[in-house]
Amino acid sequence: MILSGITFAAAGTLPGFVYAAAATPRRLVFIIQRGAADGLATVAPTGDPAFAAARRTLADETARGAKLDTMFTLHPALATTAGLYSCQQAHFAQAVATAYRDRSHFDGQNMLEGGGSRPYGRSDGWVGRLLTLLPTAERDAIAIAPAVPLALRGPVQVGTYAASRLPQADGDLIARLSVLYAEDPLLHPLWDSAVRTQELAGDIGGNNGRNGADLGKLAASLMLPADGARVMMVETGGWDTHSGQRGRLNAQLRGLDQLIGALQSGLGPAWNDTLVIVATEFGRTVEVNGTGGTDHGTASTAMLLGGNLALGGKVSADWPGLTPAGRLDGRDLRPTRSLESVIAAAVAHHYALDPKRVMTTLYPDD
Rank of each mutant, 00 (worst) to 15 (best):
A162S: 14
A162I: 02
A162R: 01
A163C: 11
S164H: 14
S164F: 10
S164V: 12
R165S: 15
L166M: 07
Q168S: 13
Q168E: 14
A169N: 11
D170P: 00
D172C: 08
D172M: 14
D172S: 14
L173R: 13
L173Q: 14
I174C: 01
I174V: 15
I174N: 06
A175M: 09
L177E: 12
V179Y: 10
V179H: 13
V179W: 00
V179T: 15
V179C: 06
V179E: 14
L180R: 09
L180W: 10
L180S: 15
Y181Q: 09
Y181K: 06
Y181H: 14
A182C: 06
A182R: 12
A182H: 12
E183M: 03
E183Q: 11
D184P: 03
D184S: 04
P185W: 15
L186V: 15
L187Y: 11
L187W: 14
H188A: 15
H188C: 09
P189S: 06
P189L: 10
L190N: 09
L190A: 14
W191V: 05
W191S: 04
W191H: 03
W191Y: 15
S193K: 09
A194G: 12
A194Q: 07
V195Q: 14
V195I: 13
R196D: 13
T197Y: 10
E199G: 01
E199Y: 07
L200C: 02
L200K: 01
A201F: 09
G202E: 14
D203Q: 08
I204N: 04
I204C: 03
I204M: 08
I204H: 06
G205C: 00
G205K: 00
G205H: 02
G205L: 02
G205S: 07
G206M: 05
G206Q: 10
N207E: 15
N207A: 15
G209L: 00
N211P: 00
N211S: 09
G212Y: 08
D214L: 05
L215N: 03
G216H: 06
K217I: 09
K217T: 13
L218E: 06
L218W: 06
A219M: 07
A219I: 04
A220T: 04
S221G: 12
S221A: 15
L222T: 01
M223I: 04
L224W: 00
P225E: 07
P225N: 08
A226R: 08
A226P: 09
A226K: 09
A226C: 10
D227W: 05
D227E: 02
G228T: 03
A229N: 00
A229I: 03
V231K: 07
V231L: 04
M233N: 06
M233Q: 10
V234F: 08
V234L: 07
T236M: 07
T236Q: 07
G237P: 02
G237D: 12
W239M: 06
W239R: 03
D240G: 00
T241H: 15
H242T: 02
H242F: 13
H242D: 11
H242Q: 15
H242V: 05
S243H: 11
S243R: 13
S243W: 12
S243G: 12
G244Y: 11
G244Q: 08
Q245V: 01
R246N: 09
R246E: 11
G247A: 03
R248D: 05
R248A: 05
R248W: 13
L249Y: 09
L249V: 01
N250E: 13
N250C: 03
N250L: 07
N250V: 01
A251C: 00
A251H: 01
Q252Y: 13
Q252N: 10
Q252L: 13
Q252A: 08
